[in-house]
């Protein structure tokens, strides 16, 4: 079958999709977007978390056909998605990348001029930068799903308590960090977000 949907603001068409394929498989193996991860493929680990019409879902549990006509945001589009939201273009319902930045452009920034020592120089979303700065990335396999989930939580709840963070991220397994640096990263992103908001008089 053929599936048409929007990924990170860009129309995509996947052909010859077998009916049993998951959205995760189509993203990873047919659309060249392997950022969403395949740690369990049974909806337990959250490493494949994407936004589907704004709602965080395990893309391994979504049949590709269910994405027909819908909007998907993956970790590859997260920076643009967050930027778009920050510049006021986001209505809270997951119009990912609607600023018009193409995926190639979205990927372009990370390839250019990033200081490989510090991770500075690339254009990242606040939650992505906070994960790097706080040491929340080790092997990094859980990171894409956690970033999408944490970004969605901060969208809903700009000033989360620790218990709020833990509840929101309880569907995302991490085996390396013991979660402490992930907590630090989300707190850091929230703090930076509120600083930005107050400096802009929001």
């Amino acid at each position: 079958m053929r599936v048409n949907f929007t990924v990170n603001g860009r129309k995509q068409e996947a052909d010859d999709v077998w009916e049993g394929e998951s959205l995760l498989y189509v993203l990873r193996e047919r659309l060249g977007l392997p950022g969403s991860k395949n740690a369990c493929e049974q909806g337990e680990c959250g490493s494949c978390t994407v936004r589907l019409d704004g709602v965080p879902v395990c893309s391994c549990l979504v049949a590709a056909g269910q994405a027909e006509g819908r909007e998907v945001v993956t970790v590859e589009g997260l920076a643009d998605f967050a930027k778009n939201r920050a510049c006021g273009g986001h209505d809270g319902e997951g119009k990912g990348g609607a600023c018009g930045t193409t995926l190639q452009e979205a990927q372009g920034w990370s390839a250019k001029g990033t200081d490989s020592q510090t991770g500075e120089g690339g254009e990242l979303s606040p939650i992505q930068q906070a994960f790097i700065d706080a040491g929340a990335v080790q092997c990094g396999f859980c990171t894409p799903g956690l970033l999408v989930a944490a970004d969605e939580m901060l969208e809903r709840n700009a000033n989360p308590s620790d218990a709020d963070i833990r509840e929101a991220l309880s569907g995302n397994l991490c085996r390396c960090t013991g979660y402490e640096k992930i907590m630090d990263a989300v707190r850091l992103a929230a703090a930076r977000q509120s600083e930005t908001a107050s400096s802009q008089g929001v």
Binding site: Q117, Q128, I132, V137, G140, F141
Partner: peptide
């Protein structure tokens, strides 16, 4: 506490596992 050289790739989904 320098930061990981692969950090950016890992948070953008481009790190090739």
């Amino acid at each position: 506490s320098t930061l990981r050289p692969d950090g950016t790739l890992k948070v953008t989904g481009e790190f090739a596992y």
